[in-house]
């Protein structure tokens, strides 16, 4: 499936196409994996004060302006962006549809990569702002998120009428994922316009559930079950940076090691594990993780060992 459009109302300068696997992740010796998984950067419409200090430090003042942040994230290597409309949350600004559309347009104007737009995560508000965004960006083929069993009618209708795609999210369960896909396709949205978010558990906080559910979904897809054949997206950054391991520079055991290193490795390890269980898009937060995970994907796809990663005879 493709995100972003360069014509017919789309103003993107690049698009992202994922999926098409005929085998388990990266096992190209036995089946095709024509497209590499993509790396998205998460940005927020308002300054995310509660984010880990490691993230706020690295994004700097750009995090106060979605357009500037978007440009910095693309410069950091993001192949697409995930814009979270947190400012629309009733507790965090309660922005209306007009402000949501303005934020999305600002980002679209600042960068040429495709966009995933996340509502604030409150059902009524999601419907209100995502529909407005969908209409105001007709033809851009953005991904509207999240589409759940509670709001799928509204979100799918917004995607159908305006040439967008949706992210269908279900809580770590193969059957619930299939069920939502059936509901979505029953509304007439073709299944190549659906990304599947099986819900991400971070390293140490349920990653094994995501790992196994994603493997089961991908195995079912390879067996021909069309309701599990959608590319999968994992919100790795949001989950891994929520944990104490990534948020607390002080007051933690010394065995946890250097904060900055540990926090970034937490995100990288979560991403690499889920890429191996079938993720097609990983949404990340830290530029160093974006860089490292992209290198890992390139290496998994091509077998090339980048110079910087070359096996050394390291000193300890």
């Amino acid at each position: 499936m493709t995100l972003g459009a360069t014509g017919d109302g789309g103003t993107r300068t690049s698009t992202v196409t994922v999926g098409g696997e005929a085998t388990l992740p990266f096992l190209q010796f036995e089946g095709a994996m024509p497209l590499k998984p993509a790396v998205a950067a998460e940005i927020v419409d308002i300054y995310p004060e509660d984010w880990s200090p490691a993230l706020l430090a690295v994004w700097g003042d750009e995090a106060r302006d979605p357009a500037a942040w978007a440009a910095k994230a693309v410069a950091a290597g993001a192949e697409l962006l995930a814009l979270k409309l947190r400012g629309c949350h009733p507790d965090q600004g309660d922005h209306g549809p007009a402000e949501a559309v303005a934020a999305v347009k600002a980002v679209l104007g600042a960068v040429g990569v495709p966009l995933i737009v996340y509502g604030p995560g409150v059902a009524d508000k999601d419907n209100e702002v995502l529909v407005a965004v969908a209409e105001a960006t007709k033809g851009e083929r953005i991904a509207l998120a999240n589409c759940t069993d509670k709001n799928y009618r509204t979100i799918v209708a917004g995607a159908l009428g305006n040439g967008h795609v949706v992210v269908g999210q279900t809580p770590i369960d193969v059957n619930l994922a299939k069920q939502l896909n059936i509901l979505i396709s029953d509304m007439g949205l073709s299944l190549d316009r659906v990304l599947l978010d099986p819900t991400t558990g971070a390293l140490g906080y349920g990653i094994e559930y995501s790992y196994s559910v994603m493997e089961r979904l991908r195995l079912a897809a390879l067996m021909g079950d069309s309701m599990t054949q959608q590319p999968m997206i994992c919100t790795v950054g949001e989950e891994s940076w929520r944990q104490k391991e990534s948020r607390s520079p002080d007051g933690v055991p010394p065995e946890w090691g250097d904060f900055a290193t540990r926090a970034v490795i937490w995100e990288i390890a979560t991403a690499v594990t889920l890429l191996q269980s079938g993720a097609d898009i990983v949404v990340l937060r830290h530029p160093a993780a974006i860089d490292r995970v992209k290198q890992a994907i390139d290496e998994l796809m091509t077998g090339a060992v980048p110079e910087a990663l070359a096996v050394s005879s390291p000193a300890v």
Binding site: G204, E245, T261, R262, I265
Partner: peptide, 8 residues
């Protein structure tokens, strides 16, 4: 030899 690697 780095706890920040070992722990994850």
């Amino acid at each position: 030899i780095d706890p920040a690697l070992f722990y994850p």
